[in-house]
Amino acid sequence: MDQLITMNLVDLCAVLMLLTSVMAVATTRMKPLITLFSLQSVFLAAEAFIVAYTSGESHIYIMCGLTLALKVVVMPKMLLYIMGKIHVDKEIDLSIGIPGSLLASGFMIFVSYYIAEPLISTMETVERNCLAISLSIILIGLLMMCTRRKAITETIGLLMMENGLFLGAIALSHGMPLIVEIAAFFDVMVVIIIIGIFANRINKSFNSVDTSFLRRLKE
């Protein structure tokens, strides 16, 4: 019986993560975007906690702790600090408008279900339908990076792709070996730091973080 409960809970958390990423695509201002990202990380941590609790894999607890510590608390603060320093205007100008990006993310969800369908039928782990959701979160993250002009939003898109990735890792195989998890985590952190540095340099030279200025190098 608890098998059923865990499946429902896991699916619930995954769906909530998907919901947050769709809403992130639809926001037009920077602050709600960051809060949505931290919300998504909270759901990811919950997911990890449930899986760890049911499967008894101890190292997933560490994963859950790390996610909570870094992605919910540290990362948003850092982003807000960067935004404050660069006093970027709150407005995110989308290149294809809200209805367009929502439709696109719907298409992405459909595609990932269509692709994951043969895999799910053969898997036996309880969280098998999380695979489709994690793939769609990744694709939506990439979509967000494609349609936003601001450097900060590209970073957040990348982080959302990472969340989808970790959801997949946890759901599919009760988490990858510990060192891999931690390695992936730190890699994400370093990437964010570097992006912060370069965002700063772009801001210094173009006094705006709008990547549409970065058009010089073309054929």
């Binding site: 990076m145 450097a151 792709m161 997949g168 890792a169 599919l172 195989s173 990437v191 990547t211 010089r216």
Partner: peptide, 27 residues
């Protein structure tokens, strides 16, 4: 700066996709 920015963004996206591939192999 622009070249480095594009380099880091595009390659990180590529590495994330590759990592997801790794997870599937692991699965």
């Amino acid at each position: 700066t622009e070249a480095a920015w594009k380099y880091i963004i595009l390659c990180s996206v590529g590495m994330t996709i590759a990592l997801f591939g790794l997870t599937l192999v692991y699965a």
